[in-house]
Nucleic acid binder design. Structure first.
Lengths: 155, 155
DNA sequence: CGCGGGCGCTAGCTCTTGCAAGCGCTCAGC
DNA sequence: GCTGAGCGCTTGCAAGAGCTAGCGCCCGCG
């Protein structure tokens, strides 16, 4: 998915709204795939109709924030993550966990660093597992942005 | 305005959705009043029609997140503030760190629990140190002095 | 007085969102 | 073979979102 076809590339540069719509759909499908549940199961968990969820995933419809909230509940992820993908909420820079830990007034700087080290090691551990599944990709840790960067392992 | 009329009071208790709709409308009107601009001026600044903005303020229509974003821009306030009033974004309850960790799709449930356990042990450790520092009044750690005033109100 | 400008609102319209009913396909069991 | 269960998708519809055209009201000015 990192290699877009030429027309998709130009469409992406030309109409960001349509791209956002496609982004949220792909993201939902990806999270659903990660959770290993069918479209119908998610629709039921989320309390939305399964045809509509299908349309949303394929970018044919643009769900409201309320629907995104329900889908997030069904996926057991935060609604904010979906809002960000849908373009109705700004993405935090360092990621929600990093931001929250750094901002926590109850932690000393050393404790913050320890927590973030544990967090990063978990993420590396998970990335390594994903890399083994994909191929043996050795190198520096590419991810630093957020969940979005996990899209490629789907391929 | 803090004294609701009796029928308004009962309507508020009966239909939370309508209440949320009314809440965001009143909030927008209040912010507009604070900014000392007319409905038409705000509509123009926000890029929405003035009749529609009027309807939104009176609770007759329920704006999408995109419209809220535009209104926020016109009011020069954060969109998040309007989202919270509209009920599509939660005020953080369990604390930013807990929320962020639980919502992180890159972590397994076990890793989340480990991280939160470490986090809570740090907080307990700091609470114990805060008790000692409090009795001595002068603490070596300035950061420790600050959090102790925050911790009790949160519990 | 009439006029212009500003105020907030009504009514009717188009388009979008989300749903229900149903379709065709695949697979497992009898 | 048939049946049932599950899969994702198509189609048509109703309700709601957001707009345009226009209204009545108020105020200041000549």
């Amino acid at each position: 998915m990192t290699n877009l076809e030429p027309d998709e590339q130009s469409a992406r540069n030309g109409n960001p709204v349509a791209n956002l719509s496609r982004d949220i759909g792909e993201y939902i499908r990806q999270q659903r795939s990660n959770a290993k549940i069918s479209l119908r199961q998610l629709a039921k968990l989320a309390g939305v109709s399964n045809p509509y969820l299908s349309q949303v995933e394929r970018g044919l419809r643009k769900p409201s924030a309320e629907i995104l909230q329900q889908i997030a509940k069904g996926l057991r992820i935060s609604a904010e993550a979906l809002y960000v993908q849908a373009g109705i909420l700004e993405q935090r820079q360092g990621g929600p966990v990093v931001d929250a830990v750094l901002a926590d007034p109850d932690l000393s700087e050393r404790q913050k660093q320890v927590l973030l080290d544990v967090y990063e090691s978990f993420r590396r551990e998970n990335a390594a597992e994903a890399s083994v599944t994909k191929s043996t990709v050795e190198g520096s840790d590419v991810d630093g942005a957020g969940p979005e960067t996990r899209t490629p392992p789907k391929e």
